[in-house]
């Protein structure tokens, strides 16, 4: 199949057939915010940050799950999109307890970086301030649900790459939360292989290695893609 030509923010761009719009946008050197997307994992289109305007389509479409097509005209950074992205980050900050000033992940956090990127400098919504527990029953890792943004990257990394599916989501709406096995303390999980991929995938430091502060551990989510790539190699 022939390569596709599309227009992104006024520039003509070529893309591989079957490629996602997000990949084409990045190829064109344009950065748009993403959160639930992680190279190497399947797409869920849940965070809504990579929504773009496509001419001729009534609804905004998630770039991560939209396939490129010939002649597509895409706008990735209109004032409307900027405003929506800022609001979405605001909603996330108001949802759980993301207090950068006292967070060990500060400086190593995708949520924090996204806030800077979209220009979210204050939260106009009421903080919900839930009281979530911290699970440190696992000998090597811990999870602080207060920092979780429900991107489900840990769930997918565990299921798709480690092939274990220790993680999943329980509850619904604002009460949704990630769980290990049958909603039991992580340390009692019989499926967890302690591989640590969930911790690599986590954007905020909600899942963290015990014994080191997150600050000492540079953000390393891209290693997930490396693992996937390494497995593809055939000599």
């Amino acid at each position: 199949m022939a390569a596709k030509t599309l227009t992104i923010d006024g520039h003509l761009v070529s893309a591989r057939p079957g490629e996602t719009l997000l990949a084409a946008i990045r190829d064109a050197g344009i950065t748009i915010p993403t959160l639930c997307h992680l190279d190497g994992l399947s797409e869920v289109g849940a965070c809504r940050l990579c929504l773009v305007e496509i001419e001729g389509q009534r609804r905004l479409q998630p770039a991560c799950m939209t396939m490129v097509s010939e002649g597509m005209v895409v706008h990735t950074n209109t004032p409307r999109l900027q405003s929506y992205r800022r609001q979405i980050i605001e909603l996330l900050f108001a949802e759980r307890n993301h207090v950068c000033a006292v967070c060990v992940a500060s400086g190593n956090c995708e949520l924090q970086r996204l806030a800077g990127m979209v220009g979210m400098d204050h939260v106009r919504y009421e903080y919900l301030s839930p009281n979530y527990p911290v699970d440190i029953s696992h000998p090597r890792f811990g999870i602080d649900h207060n920092r979780c943004v429900l991107c489900t990257r840990c769930v997918r990394a565990c299921d798709e790459i480690e092939g274990v599916h220790t993680w999943d989501v329980a509850g619904r709406g604002v009460n949704a939360h990630v769980i290990t096995d049958l909603n039991q303390p992580w340390g009692t999980s019989t499926t967890c292989t302690s591989c640590g991929k969930c911790q690599l995938a986590c954007p905020t430091g909600a899942i963290f290695p015990r014994g080191v502060t997150v600050g000492e551990r540079p953000h390393a989510s891209e290693r997930i893609a490396l693992i996937v790539e390494a497995r593809k190699q055939r000599w």
Partner: peptide
């Protein structure tokens, strides 16, 4: 809607509560 939101996407999960 707040009670019935599945919690997958942020605008619905947090927006309904707000």
């Amino acid at each position: 809607c707040k009670d019935e939101s599945c919690g997958k996407c942020i605008p619905c999960r947090v927006g309904t509560v707000q």
